[in-house]
Write a protein that binds this DNA or RNA. Structure first.
Length: 429
RNA sequence: GGUGGGGUACCGAAGCGGCUAAACGGGGCAGACUGUAAAUCUGCUGGCCUCCGGCCUACGUAGGUUCGAAUCCUACCCCCACCA
């Protein structure tokens, strides 16, 4: 027991420890610095908010005076982790994986410090898995595991029970991940693996391998699954997955995602997704309880996380757009230039001005054309349901004509669907 | 390779010759109420049109039987279980 708050204590106080292997807590009680890693699957070009928890865990590790390793699964990505998946996965091509690895690598780099005493490392397991021979693998890794052990893993057992089928390829995944841990242990003196709760089986397999093959101890900590009070899957909005890449999810939408957090989740998210000290969070929550309508907790959450992921510039942009869209100022009071600047982060389309000349387009055609509605039928239904606004005013007639005169300064139309979904149409020659 | 079960809309799941663009549940979208929240209630949820009406595509794929098929027949593809 030390008086200093350790990495482990901090995680625990924030509700971020779902399960930990024996000895994990004590590992941090000593004052020495350790090395820990987390693996990231290159299933997409970008990481999404779901990965934020592990990323921040690595950053916390570093801030607590330890050395983090972010491992990108360029090798394991070729196989596909069955954990938490109900059916066999589609294999990615080598090119896809490489492309994804590059994207993820760049993102991870933003959260970690690669300089100094506790410099972070960014590795790709393809470096060792790519050249690993089957014979070598079976002798060095396979020998240490029994089928019984592997079948007992929850991820495997569940798949078999649900009748989802499990190929040898996916079945073997845990061995590869175990091998990763062994390699990192050998080469970088890595003693800890962190991960999502679905990684428990893979992590313990690694610890097992290190113990059997090297006689060394290693530890694992898994983070809880992020849940939402309303039961919706975390990280999804009507617009789909919330990515960390600003090309895929604009800072504005990213900010909005956090701003729309359920009251019941706010405190938990502040603890999990920001570095704010716990006593400060307690203060924020007190204010929030006094005046929930101000949504102070959500604002702070959105501010902190957006800054973390998109920097001060991204945050400033997000706040500017938010102020305009939800600040109560009529859209038509803005100049076209202001609108275009402010709406840079809002989805937009270009349209030839000529199409709005003369008779123009009907509201329905405009909505379908710009993609605000998936079809004319949907556009019609939306309008009849009262969910469509043109330049801030509700459209009531599906056949209402929209002409150049309706555009602000003859250049810009602002379409809104529902309360939160905005779309800008730029008129071009 | 054998035997049995199965492939229906975003997902789950009914239907098993016409009344089916397809019950029901979930999800999603919109509206009301609000705090850009939750809960609740309401509407919508294949496409197109000249939209209180009409047309076109759809129930694994391709053919066939029938006035008429998601529903019957044939072949093929895929999935699952058990056996070999």
């Amino acid at each position: 027991m030390t008086s200093k708050t350790t990495f482990f204590d901090d995680l625990e106080a924030r509700g971020l420890i779902y399960e930990a292997t024996e000895g994990a807590r004590e590992l941090f009680a000593e004052s020495r610095s350790i090395t820990g890693y987390i693996g990231f699957d290159p299933t997409a070009r970008s990481l999404h908010v779901g990965s934020l928890l592990p990323i921040l865990a690595l950053a916390r590790l570093q801030r607590a005076g330890h050395r983090p390793i972010a491992l990108v699964g360029g090798g394991t990505g070729m196989i596909g982790d069955p954990s938490g998946k109900t059916r066999e996965r589609q294999l990615l091509t080598r090119e896809q994986v490489e492309e994804n690895v590059e994207g993820i690598r760049a993102q991870l780099a933003r959260f970690l410090d690669f300089e100094g005493e506790f410099a972070a490392r960014l590795l790709d397991n393809h470096d060792w898995l790519g050249s690993l021979g089957v014979i070598e693998f079976l002798r060095d890794v396979g020998k240490h595991f029994t089928i019984n052990y592997m079948l007992a893993k929850e991820s495997v057992a569940r798949r078999l029970q649900d009748g989802g089928g499990l190929s040898v390829t996916e079945f073997s995944y845990m061995l590869l991940q175990a091998y990763d841990f062994l390699v990192l242990s050998d080469r970088h003196d890595c003693v800890l693996q962190l991960g999502g709760s679905d990684q428990w089986g893979n992590i313990t397999a690694g610890i097992e391998l290190i113990r059997r093959a090297r006689g060394r101890a290693a530890y694992g900590i898994v983070l809880p699954l992020v849940t939402t009070a309303s039961g919706v899957k975390f990280g999804k909005t009507e617009a789909g997955t919330v990515w960390l890449d600003s090309e895929l999810t604009s800072p504005y939408r990213f900010y909005q995602f956090w701003l729309n957090t359920d009251d019941r989740d706010a405190e938990h998210y502040l603890k999990a997704f920001t570095f704010l000290p716990l006593d400060e969070i307690a203060g924020i929550m007190e204010d929030h309880a006094r005046n929930p309508a101000a949504r102070g907790a959500q604002r702070r959450l959105a501010t902190e996380v957006t800054r973390l992921v998109h920097g001060d510039d991204g945050l400033a942009r997000a706040e500017r757009v938010t102020a305009v869209l939800f600040g109560g100022r009529p859209v038509r009071d803005l100049s076209a230039a202001e609108l275009l600047d402010v709406f840079a982060d809002v989805p937009s389309t270009e349209m030839a001005r000529a199409r709005l000349e003369g008779e123009g387009l009907s509201a329905v055609e405009l909505l379908a054309d710009t993609g605000v509605a998936a079809s004319k039928g949907e556009a019609r239904r939306l309008i009849l349901g009262g969910g469509v606004y043109l330049n801030g005013e509700r459209v009531t007639d599906p056949d209402q004509r929209v002409r150049t005169e309706d555009a602000i300064e003859g250049k810009v139309l602002v379409l809104r669907k529902g309360k939160k979904s905005n779309h800008v149409v730029r008129l071009v020659a």
